[in-house]
Design a protein around this nucleic acid. Structure first.
Lengths: 148, 148
DNA sequence: CTTCATGCAAAGTATTTGCAGCGTC
DNA sequence: GACGCTGCAAATACTTTGCATGAAG
């Protein structure tokens, strides 16, 4: 699968959704566009603000419901970097498991990929705890280059 | 420093607090006792319930304020395992940095110590992101032995 | 014209704050 | 008796829900 222009990518997603019986509404397509165009995870408040800029101004309930919808389909995932609110991140088809680093000064959140054996670590944890380990969360905190 | 009976340990903590000007109240000593006697991180609601069992039934504001108090002193730390509420964990004097595993069925939270080089990992992240990495959060999810 | 999606207002959950009174030292 | 601590009620922040209306297919 080759890379596509964002607009083509959005169209592809919308087509798939429509084919599965979902309606394509202004909120839905704008929100998906927003996610695809964003390299960072977004909060509900940020989404609301961004959509307002685009003259959409949906109700917050609708945004939360849309997030639930995309979550259930696995199109986005929920992440939590201890800010007291959740962030949501688009999952490209072959999304690689990755982590985030949060600037404790300005709050910016960036994605990072790590190259260490997380499988092995999970296996260790499973052995130690007796749990069947299904997932994990690993987030870093620090001060970004700009804030230093 | 040798191990002490919980009650002796509590007394020691209370003495230090008193010496620094804090008052020793029923809530304060019970809460500290609760933390010292618990091997797992607690939520505000759990604390409230436990104290009620001990016929204390404090107001939730007081519990939250007491948690803030202990947090500022570094006697407890805040942890977040994506439950929508915070957990608080007692920090023994030479507390070792560790992690948690949460059962996605019954919600039980256990502590685990990992033996892998987290310093090294943080350094890698710092290099990759350009951030000055100050801390990280690593939590595991799975199904506990009882729930399987 | 049938569902799915939306707006609105109200409720829910976790936590915080202002303030007057009480308890510890 | 001074000052820290407490209860209470109200406020805040984020998210969820019920219900009637609206729009996509």
């Amino acid at each position: 699968m080759t890379d596509k222009k964002p607009s083509a990518k959005i169209q592809e997603v919308l087509d798939t959704l429509r084919a599965s019986g979902a309606r394509i509404t202004a909120l839905r397509s704008s929100l998906i566009g927003l996610f695809i165009g964003s390299s960072r995870p977004l909060t509900a408040a940020e989404i609301l603000a961004e959509l307002k800029k685009k003259k959409l101004a949906p109700n917050k309930s609708s945004v939360y419901r849309e997030l639930d919808f995309l979550l259930e389909l696995g199109r986005i995932i929920e992440i939590d970097v201890l800010e007291g609110m959740k962030r949501y991140e688009w999952q490209p088809e072959h999304a690689q498991h990755h982590h985030h680093i949060v600037c404790t000064q300005c709050g910016v959140v960036e994605c990072i990929e790590l190259c260490f054996n997380e499988e092995e670590l999970s296996a260790k944890v499973a052995k130690k705890s007796g749990f069947a380990v299904t997932s994990h969360v690993l987030e870093f905190f620090g001060v970004c280059a700009d804030c230093r």
